[in-house]
Write a protein that binds this DNA or RNA. Structure first.
Length: 424
RNA sequence: GGAGGGGUGGCAGAGUGGUCGAAUGCGUCGGUCUUGAAAACCGAAGUGCCGCAAGGUACCGUGGGUUCGAAUCCCACCCCCUCUGCCA
């Protein structure tokens, strides 16, 4: 949520920055400001009346004590009370409308965020490694999965529906090995604390990180929308600190978690979705940072490097891009995407999205810290995938495939898998 | 699921209709003392909103209600704890 004071102070430049993301959220800003003015004017009047009421009520107390008649004064106060109630209702209406609209305004892109309409305007920041070369025609992960019986989409559909998969045999073990490898890496080399949160999340938390109110249709709801299946561990993990007032000694907080993620992916069928690439349920290891505002820029760089380490350790070629204004997620001010090369697929796949949300999420969830001067300030929150499993899995299989269809296992993963080769 | 107890400042915990934004302790900050620290002592300090400010106002789990006036009384809901049932 944006600070209303930013909107008040310079509405035109805020509009321009919101506009740079595309979409029409900026058109709400005038109404927000109108509500704000109405609210404040009403508030002032209401408070004046409340002040009168408090004063006169005290007089009544005095009169009663001395046994004098207070009925005419009581009638006066009753009238004031009615007026307070009426104005209070107007103020509440304006206030809730203002909040409702403000929750729909996305975060401001960072000042230096590249301006552009869509993903074609995302600059590549760096690359690591090279596309592997094969002396045979590499196949894609779907084919490799079939040959080695690693996963089965029909078995996913049988017990659930399309968009779900069942991993089998060494395929299931590889999934588990990768999760274990990722958590071990982040907790030992990157100083993260591991948490294992609930996967069923309440509404307040979904508002806190910005999934609600705009993206309700993208998520699986339970109990008439009172709860949702977690679309990402970002939601439960960041919200562990919702409505908290932290001390400076508590920061930075670095948490990692493995969770399954559930997304309806409404309307995205067929597009870039072959095999495991886009599922309704997928595993992910997430990295969450909660830091002081002045540190968040540095932590985004570190966080991105931590996610990249995963691919380096596994020897997978990747590139890191920065998202332009038009491609940025709703709550994010600045985002790096890491894309891993998948030789059989013949393209790059997004395996991680690392974002700095500034105080956008912490303002929504009232996550603050007390600084040296005793002032309460909003924290900055960040998160990144470290990494998403299915696409990592895809790139892994396709990169390490052999002519006979078997998969070579790199050294880093061998202890977790108990073998140096799958298949053949 | 059932019975009982409880939700108050960063934390713990008093407070059962007006003088309560709220005792006390811990923790925090400043000071005295000390070579320095600890201890002791003195002092400061809740959060949001409105206001240029002075100041005002709201907030005692959430939402309603009673009242001239509610942390305090009533209703509903949420959460936590203890016991208990079923159960991985």
């Amino acid at each position: 949520m944006l600070d209303i004071r930013l909107l008040r102070d310079d509405p035109e430049s805020i509009k321009t920055r919101v506009k740079s993301r595309g979409g029409d959220a900026w058109t709400l800003i005038d109404e927000i400001l109108a509500c704000d003015e109405k609210r404040r004017a009403g508030e002032t009047e209401k408070q004046q009346l409340q002040s009168d009421r408090n004063r006169i009520s005290k007089e009544i107390g005095q009169l009663k004590k001395t046994g004098e008649d207070s009925s005419s004064v009581e009638a006066e106060v009753r009238k004031i009370g009615e007026r307070i109630k009426a104005i209070g209702e107007e103020v509440d209406t304006a206030d809730s409308r203002q909040t409702e609209l403000l929750l729909q305004i996305p975060n401001l892109p960072h000042e230096e965020c590249p301006v552009g309409e869509d993903e074609t305007a995302n600059p590549v920041i760096r690359e690591w490694g090279k596309q592997p070369e094969f002396d045979f025609e590499p196949v894609d992960h779907v084919e490799l999965g079939k040959r080695n019986e690693l996963f089965d989409f029909e078995l996913g559909a049988r017990v659930s529906s399309s968009g779900f998969v069942t991993y089998t045999g060494m395929g299931a073990r590889l999934e588990r090995a990768l999760i274990q490898f990722l958590l071990d890496l982040h907790t030992t080399a990157h100083d993260y604390r591991e948490v294992s949160p609930p996967f069923i999340i309440n509404r307040d938390s979904m508002f806190g990180t910005g999934q609600l109110p705009k993206f309700e249709d993208d998520m699986y709801g339970l109990e008439d929308g009172a709860f949702f299946l977690a679309p990402t561990a970002e939601v439960p993990v960041t919200n562990l600190y919702r409505e908290q007032l932290l001390g400076i000694g508590d920061l930075p907080i670095k948490l990692t978690a493995y969770t399954p993620c559930f997304r309806r992916e409404a309307g995205s069928a067929g597009r870039e979705s072959r095999g495991l690439i886009r599922m309704h349920q997928f595993d992910k290891v997430e990295l969450v940072n909660i830091v002081r505002p002045e540190d968040s820029a540095d932590y985004l760089e570190k966080l991105t490097a931590e996610a990249e380490t995963v691919l380096q350790k596994l020897g997978l070629h990747y590139r890191t891009i920065e998202l332009c204004t038009g491609d940025l997620g709703f709550s994010s001010a600045k985002t790096y995407d890491i894309e891993v090369w998948a030789p059989g697929h013949g393209g790059y796949l997004e395996v991680s999205s690392c974002s700095n949300f500034f105080d956008y999420q912490s303002r929504r969830m009232k996550l603050r810290f007390k600084d040296e001067e005793g002032k309460n300030r909003f924290c900055h929150t960040l998160n990144g995938s470290g990494t998403a499993l299915p696409r990592l899995y895809v790139a892994f299989l396709e990169t390490y495939q052999q002519a006979d269809g078997s998969i070579l296992i790199p050294e880093a993963l061998q202890p977790y898998l108990g073998t140096d080769r799958i298949g053949a």
